[in-house]
Nucleic acid binder design. Structure first.
Lengths: 208, 208
DNA sequence: TTTGTCATTACCCGACCTGGTAAGTGTTTC
DNA sequence: GAAACACTTACCAGGTCGGGTAATGACAAA
């Protein structure tokens, strides 16, 4: 018997979900809530196999709840329920620790198969979400944007690892002043004025 | 008519792919190569709609080729072909810019549907790959590891944006020396000795 | 009530970083 | 061959940072 917790503020839909799950015979709804404020405690007390979580709920969003739940439980499979095909929210939810998502309009036909897929494969994604995720992973090729020379690239990488000018000079076997010279050029190209700014920009824009 | 380039070092498989694509009637193989050393130039010269790319090839791996191709062409859909269900390589390929992958043993039945899915949806992923990708996005919750206070967290975040001590003090409306005091504690907790080290560690470990 | 933690401020000194300016070598390109 | 570029080194002046030390008030837990 697969245990399931439901978090959904719309009472009608929540009861619909409970009935749908009960009908199938394989699932037992062990908890059903109209908000996720206590979700962390509830999961801790009696961890279910699967959680159905609405994204848009008053008080705390489902995404925040997923983060809190994931912090204390890495096993439970979380399936997000959304009204709209809202790309950014879905991506956020997945980063937070959700394993799948489902549009509410598809619940009646696709919920049971999605849960089974979740349990069997560990994921449940539609092609459109897959595409979005792929796009988010494929860093746009901005490497050439600042047009660093090999040496500059190399020195920026070392700087980003937390090396001081001295250490970089020692590492590359060149003079301290040479390192400074490169770093000046790097700052100019990045349009920054300190090492922290440069490191921040370099890492966030995946220049290293 | 959909144009396709094939990169595959195994001659038998390469010819098989050509025939399979020709048979269907919808596809035209505009190029077929046993290595990807010239891939960049070939794509530049006559960009196809779809590229089939073997991952393991002599000289240059398919993954490197994907990076080079993506740098000059963001439109072409690239489908990777692999012998093994090799998780890490597939993930690398997707990060490099591939839009889908396929096991060679499944080519005969699934190649045509996969290409169509690629063109229609922009992605072609199996659940097992989807799971892997999701797992790679879900950063393990290490936020509590260093046990920062609210203020420390706040100051670290500002530091990571490239702010100087002065700027942080102004931003938070506290004294310069107070900022220094916090940063000393942050360095102690992170076990670092400079701003660049701290920023590097904070961003890479997703502490911000 | 005492101990602990958090948030706050301050000073000193030595080390480090930033910006400006200048100039030497070698390689590639026109 | 000249021009452009990458790589290399150097000095100065002023600003910033890092570590040590010390202190105050607030608030919570023991």
């Amino acid at each position: 018997m697969i245990t399931i917790q439901v978090y959904e503020d719309n009472a009608a839909l929540r009861h619909g979900l409970e009935q749908l799950l009960s009908f199938s015979g394989d699932f037992a709804v062990t908890g059903s809530f109209d908000n996720c404020l206590q979700a962390e405690a509830e999961v801790k007390q009696s961890p279910p196999d699967v959680i159905l979580m609405d994204i848009d709920m008053p008080g705390m969003t489902g995404i925040e709840a997923v983060k809190k739940i994931r912090a204390i439980n890495t096993k439970v499979q979380i399936l997000m329920l959304t009204v709209f095909d809202d790309n950014t929210h879905i991506l956020e939810a997945i980063c937070a620790g959700a394993s799948g998502y489902m549009l509410k309009k598809n619940v009646s036909e696709k919920l049971i198969p999605a849960i089974n897929e979740l349990l069997a494969e560990g994921a449940s994604l539609s092609p459109s979400v897959a595409k979005m995720i792929i796009a988010s992973m494929q860093q746009p090729t901005t490497k050439q944007q600042y047009d660093f020379t090999n040496r500059e690239q190399e020195i920026l990488a070392l700087l980003c690892k937390g090396n001081s000018y001295k250490m970089i000079a020692a590492e590359l076997g060149i003079a301290f002043e040479t390192v400074r010279s490169y770093i000046k050029k790097i700052y100019e190209k990045l349009q920054v004025h300190s090492a922290t700014e440069a490191v921040s920009k370099a890492i966030n824009e995946k220049l290293i």
